[in-house]
Design a binder for these strands. Structure first.
Length: 648
DNA sequence: CAATAGAGCGCT
DNA sequence: AAAGCGCTCTATTG
């Protein structure tokens, strides 16, 4: 028998805590309101709901709106274009009297800080959010994040709580997406939603937990749960950022954009929307009679390719105006100006404005630190993703981009440690093969691109290393092609050689590295023979790929490339996750990990702890306890720098 | 007016 | 016939 209720007084709350304390596990969910919604450790919790055997409750603490609209008032507001308008705002009845957060969290402390298993869907958000009410202290493990368990059990489906519940129990609840803005909805509606999230999350927990064992995923799952402790800390600590650098860059880019814009209009002879791909297509590819420049388009957009395949008629806007296409006409004044504009507009819009001028309620920088969301299950391969903002695509290549990276810097009396694995994907490949030239090269301390060039071009590695950067760059393209399954066209483009040359080198590569191709074929073949086609990574993460059995050649080939890449990419992801856990288990107090970018981690450490932190990070990433998992030597580069941009 | 799709581009 | 992401802008759709 399930009892469900809204908790509004201390007596009820005490009863709830006593009930939950009798069980070894519970599930909970929080709702939060601006400011800082979505940033645990800074946000304001307005509801917490809990579920366990026989009971689900929700506890409101400061929901304003009642259940009915009792009138309306008129409000003035400013539109995006700066116009002043009137709008009618509904007036709500008042909500029932609720407990204060201090009362609620004091009563919940024995439960949240007990050794009971704590479940939540996207647990770092929930666990991290309540920490604020305990002076930053974080409710301890054991954890069960049902988002993580759901993804591990099947990475190819929608794994949000709502879609999972719909798939499992055919229950569609909260069709209005109440959780996105609880403060906009009635007390009754939020109560129902919040209670449902916990009650159904509890069911998902009971569903997933035994399946984790059944599918042999327990060790991997335990690792992911331990990793969440680091995720929670990273989210709370944030990543120090120098606003002054961004503000300076904003001024520079604004001025540059005005110039680029003028140059474009001058060269084209008229004005148009520089950010509109269709208008750009008209301008660059359009005939001169119609005011275009009459250049010959280079490649189709994705939509254009699809149209062509369906035999539909192509229009001028089906031709891509991306930077690659425009680069063919470098030297043309309009093209050069357009390329400059696109580059600077991208940098300003995505990396400067987004950080300095976020939408209201969407504050990204708090006390000089940006609090991104790192999602350890962000990619189907097991890689991390990052969002709000994405710290994994901060520019590094162009000088303008590098300036953005320089805004990420250590605070006074601190330094950043930037550590990245050397050639981690090729290390994984050599490890799995277990022998061959790549494998031997790693043991001799020769980097894989040099080995590849030496064998493909029949030169001594020393000669390649010292005098032939050109051949090494071709070798880089060839190795890239292995891991990603690229064809001659891509290799040619990467290495800036002809497609025929690329073909020739790929053929030689196949002859010199037969074990690589045999291994790749073996992985794909083995995967296809499984009852459910899949492969596994270093630490047993599963990549399921039913399309391996597709009769459609194109689909099947794509699946083969994805499968093989997933094994390599996923194993590299396993390794860095393990390294992060090892860092967490053993690092100097006062040093904090602040970000991870696939094969790299960043640590913020007081200057007096730099050497100690370096040693801990080195051990975490390549020490014996992790090296024993990999049959070739792991390498890592560590730089202690003031600014992220100084590491490369 | 809000939500979504497509194009394009930043990173490993 | 290049793996994996997230963000911003425009244009379209509801």
């Amino acid at each position: 028998m399930l009892s469900r209720s809204i908790v509004l007084d201390t007596e009820h709350l005490d009863h709830v805590v006593r009930h939950f304390s009798r069980h070894g596990a519970f599930f909970f969910d929080i709702e939060s309101i601006p400011p800082y919604r979505g940033i645990p450790a800074h946000n304001t919790v307005s509801w917490i709901s809990l579920a366990t055997y026989g009971m689900a409750v929700t506890i409101p603490m400061g929901h304003i709106k009642g259940d009915r609209i009792i009138g309306e008032r008129v409000e003035m507001y400013e539109t995006k274009t700066g116009k002043i308008r009137k709008r009618k705002i509904p007036v709500w009845s008042t909500a029932p009297e609720q407990l204060r957060p201090s009362q609620v969290f004091e009563a919940l402390e024995p439960l949240l800080f007990s050794d009971r298993e704590k479940g939540a869907h996207s647990l770092p958000m929930d666990v991290g959010s309540v920490a604020k009410y305990y002076g930053g202290k974080i409710p301890p493990p054991p954890y069960h994040d049902t988002y993580t368990s759901s993804v591990l059990l099947d990475e190819n489906r929608l794994n949000g709580l709502k879609p999972r519940i719909k798939q499992l129990y055919k229950i569609a609840y909260d069709t209005e997406d109440t959780g996105r803005r609880v403060e906009a909805h009635s007390f009754r509606k939020v109560a129902r939603y919040s209670y449902a999230d916990s009650a159904l999350g509890w069911l998902l927990y009971k569903h997933n937990d035994p399946l984790i064992d059944k599918q042999g995923l327990r060790d991997l799952f335990d690792m992911e749960m331990e990793l969440l402790e680091e995720v929670i800390d990273m989210a709370a600590y944030g990543d120090p950022v120098d606003k002054a650098v961004l503000e300076e860059l904003e001024r520079e880019l604004t001025a540059a954009l005005v110039e680029h814009e003028a140059r474009i209009y001058r060269a084209v002879g008229r004005e148009f929307n520089l950010n509109s791909p269709p208008q750009k297509a008209q301008v660059f590819w359009g005939p001169k009679e119609q005011g275009g420049l009459g250049l010959k388009p280079v490649k189709l957009t994705d939509g254009g390719v699809k149209k062509k395949r369906r035999g539909e008629k192509l229009t001028i806007t089906d031709w891509s105006t991306d930077a690659d296409s425009l680069k063919k006409y470098k030297g043309h004044p309009a093209v050069d100006a357009m390329l400059d504009y696109q580059r600077d507009d991208k940098l300003k819009g995505t990396y400067v404005d987004a950080l300095l001028h976020p939408d209201e309620d969407d504050c990204l920088i708090i006390n000089g630190r940006v609090h991104a969301r790192f999602n350890p299950m962000g990619a189907r391969t097991g890689r991390w993703s990052s969002s709000s903002p994405n710290l994994q695509n901060i520019p590094v290549r162009t000088p303008q981009g590098k300036k953005i990276r320089s805004a990420f810097r250590a605070e006074d009396d601190y330094l950043e440690l930037i550590a990245d694995y050397g050639q981690i994907e090729l290390v994984m490949l050599a490890h799995f093969i277990g022998y061959g030239a790549l494998f031997d090269g790693f043991w001799k301390g020769i980097d894989p691109h040099t080995i590849t060039a030496a064998l493909v071009f029949a030169l001594p590695p020393d000669e390649v290393k010292a005098n032939r950067p050109d051949l090494r760059s071709i070798a880089k393209g060839l190795n890239f092609a292995i891991v990603y399954g690229a064809g001659p066209d891509t290799v040619a483009e990467m290495a800036e050689i002809t497609v025929n040359e690329a073909r020739k080198h790929m053929k030689k590569h196949r002859a010199e590295f037969p074990e690589v191709y045999a291994y790749k074929a073996h992985v794909i073949d083995t995967a296809r023979r499984q009852k459910y086609p899949h492969t596994t990574t270093l630490l047993g993460r599963v990549r399921r790929m039913p399309e391996l059995r597709s009769r459609d050649d194109e689909k099947r080939s794509a699946a083969e490339r994805q499968l093989f890449n997933s094994k390599i990419q996923g194993s590299a992801a396993d390794l860095i996750k393990l390294a992060m856990i090892r860092w967490r288990r053993n690092h100097p107090a006062g040093a904090h990990m602040t970000r991870t970018v696939h094969d790299e981690v960043g640590v913020h450490t007081p200057k007096h702890l730099v050497e100690e932190s370096k040693a801990a990070l080195l051990d975490a990433m390549v020490g014996p306890g992790i090296q024993k998992l990999v049959k070739v030597p792991l390498t890592v580069d560590i730089h202690a720098v003031e600014r992220w941009s100084d590491a490369k």
